[in-house]
């Protein structure tokens, strides 16, 4: 990137100064009896350790620039995102892990392939500088939307079971009977993304754009990427939540159009 030389490299001393900000929060927590000191300390240590580790790994992957290392990193990210997506559910969905893995893998792979291969046209396609951050953004959003959709579906199945069973008793198929709930879950999952598209740049500058500007890119280059990112996230989250909710709803139904109430 042309302006990269203008970036100020943060020294350890400077990071130490940044840590003072957390120190202030610790003081506030002590004064107000929030009981957050321990979590703040652990959180600060984790922030430092995790990010340094990731930085070291990424630096190695970037310099090696091997396609299989890039694929491996994305696979690990997908596995962690899968775990995070299902761990937030109130009650485990039977087979929820496989469903989430499938939904996140397919949505990320399809969106990533399109963005890397068709939109940005990265050469070679596995260029880690592009693939890893873009995959991370898609996965992060896909994970959140799948978790939101799953959570909403579960809650609705519990509270609206009589509605579903009334539909079944009227002769509708299982799929037809849960369709209103699937729709509500998808809407709930998509709302943050759609709201984000409405207010992007006006309420807050997105992380990626901020990062690019800090790294010395012209704001006009940065917005180009940001626009692509917004569209990409819309597609990724829609695909992830649709796959997740459809498959998850299927787990609560039987081939004989019954609602497996004991799972709720």
């Amino acid at each position: 990137m042309s302006g990269a030389s203008s970036v100020i490299d943060l020294s350890l001393g400077q990071l130490g100064l940044a840590l003072l900000l957390v120190g202030v929060v610790v003081l506030v927590s002590l004064r107000q009896g929030l009981g957050l000191e321990r979590d703040l300390l652990v959180g600060s240590v984790r922030t430092i350790v995790q990010l340094y580790l990731v930085g070291l790994i990424l630096a190695a992957v970037f310099s090696a620039a091997r396609w299989y290392l890039v694929v491996l990193v994305v696979a690990v990210m997908t596995a962690v995102a899968t775990q995070a997506a299902v761990s937030r559910l109130a009650k485990p969905i039977p087979g929820g892990h496989q469903i989430a893995a499938l939904a996140l893998t397919v949505s990320t792979a399809v969106t990533l392939a399109y963005v890397i291969g068709v939109v940005v046209r990265v050469r070679p396609w596995y260029e880690p500088q592009y693939v890893i951050p873009i995959a991370g953004m898609i996965l992060g959003n896909a994970m959140t939307s799948a978790a939101l959709a799953g959570d909403r579906l579960q809650g609705d199945l519990r509270s609206r079971a009589p509605e579903v069973e009334t539909m079944l008793a009227l002769g509708f198929s299982g799929r037809e009977a849960v369709q209103p709930l699937v729709r509500a879950a998808l809407r709930a999952a998509m709302i943050p993304t759609v709201n984000g598209m409405m207010t992007v740049g006006v309420v807050q500058l997105p992380g990626m754009m901020t990062g690019q500007i800090l790294a010395g890119s012209s704001p006009l280059v940065a917005i180009g990427y940001q626009i692509m990112v917004m569209f990409m996230l819309a597609a990724g989250t829609a695909m992830a939540s649709l796959l997740f909710v459809r498959l998850a709803a299927g787990r609560y139904l039987t081939a004989a159009h019954q609602l497996r109430r004991y799972l709720l």
Binding site: P162, E163, T166, A169, L170, G171, F172, E176
Partner: peptide
């Protein structure tokens, strides 16, 4: 689905969907 048409279930708490009584009576696969 055919069985449930021939053996119609009426539940303890009546579930009616959004719309008029006509919409509810019409509701069918």
């Amino acid at each position: 689905r055919e069985l449930r048409r021939r053996a119609a279930l009426v539940m303890q708490t009546p579930v009616l969907f959004e719309g008029t009584v006509r919409d509810n009576l019409w509701l069918r696969p």
